[in-house]
Design a protein around this nucleic acid. Sequence first.
DNA 1: TATTGTTATACTCTATAACTATA
DNA 2: TATAGTTATAGAGTATAACAATA
Lengths: 136, 136
Amino acid sequence: MTDLLAQLPGYALRRAANAVMGELAPILAGHDLKIAEAAVLLLVREQANLTSSQIGKTLDIQRANMVPLLNRLESAGLIHREPIDKKSLAINLTKDGEAKICEAGAAIDTFEKNLLARVPAEHRDHLLPALNAIWR
Amino acid sequence: MTDLLAQLPGYALRRAANAVMGELAPILAGHDLKIAEAAVLLLVREQANLTSSQIGKTLDIQRANMVPLLNRLESAGLIHREPIDKKSLAINLTKDGEAKICEAGAAIDTFEKNLLARVPAEHRDHLLPALNAIWR
DNA sequence: TATTGTTATACTCTATAACTATA
DNA sequence: TATAGTTATAGAGTATAACAATA
């Protein structure tokens, strides 16, 4: 019935992403994080002293939308901002932020493993390179 | 740098879906259709006399959100609704609706081919089965 | 009792435009 | 001139609750 739609890569991509994000969101909510916030924390942990603009470019988040996101992370005591010059702010994790992304990161790793486990073995190793070829 | 995030299948899935939908939307907008509307037309063309509820269940659209969507398609003269009983309405394409999804469908087919062409040959045939395994 | 279609509403996510201060 | 951070706002898209009428 829906086989026609499921044969469209674009449609399958949309449904798969919606399904996966719909499952990940409540897991991260258990850590009081949204998906975009977790992505920011993972990136900031990986690379120190990034600015808001740099984070936005890397994660495809508009500068304007970074403001409330970072404000919330800062209010929660997970990041702190330090002037680089009179124009830019370096963003880094606080101790609490490190602890938070450590525990949330473990939940994410488990989630990602379970996600890959759903894919039949013969297709599994092809998923990531195929997806990254589409957007990178 | 972002390699850490790009190695998470969930993250790659999200970015790929966002990128692809961001490209498809303006193409369909050229046919005065939104992505969800095009999906409805494709489904309704494939299977006659579906109800709003059935379409919603198949495409993962809330019943409440089907109302404005179908109203717009009906106002545009692309679908018509006919009572099945005193409770349900059968939805089918009009002549204009058939013409619309024919031309939009051609654009979608071209888009999907170009999408697959981006995926390296050795991964290409694995994408669709991997994605469908995730959500179906 | 469960389901259909519907209304109204709220919430999240994202996009745009404009402003200032600084590089 | 271009960029960083910010504000305000608007638009999608989606989710929830409730209702009347019917299966």
